[in-house]
């Protein structure tokens, strides 16, 4: 497949923007933030309490 000069340039630019964006998105999913972690803990505490029947008492 042969691309002309401007097609090559735009292909390079689009690849770069995609790679920078994808890397940024993947970095965002590398692990939880402190807030997400706190929410998760709250949720699991509530579930555990429900399991013990404390909330329904």
């Amino acid at each position: 497949m042969n691309f002309d000069a401007w097609q090559t340039i735009w292909l390079c630019v689009v690849c770069s923007v995609l790679v920078l964006g994808l890397d940024s998105v993947l970095a965002h999913r590398a692990g939880p933030t402190k807030t997400e972690l706190a929410r998760k803990r709250q949720r699991s505490n509530r579930t555990a309490q429900r399991g013990e029947g404390k909330i329904n008492e």
């Binding site: 965002h28 590398a30 692990g31």
Partner: peptide, 21 residues
């Protein structure tokens, strides 16, 4: 700058997972 931003974002999330999770 974009790479530095991505690395910092990834590092802070890895840090939370390692120390506080």
């Amino acid at each position: 700058l974009v790479c530095a931003s991505t690395v910092l974002n990834r590092a802070r999330r890895l840090l939370v997972q390692r120390r506080w999770a």
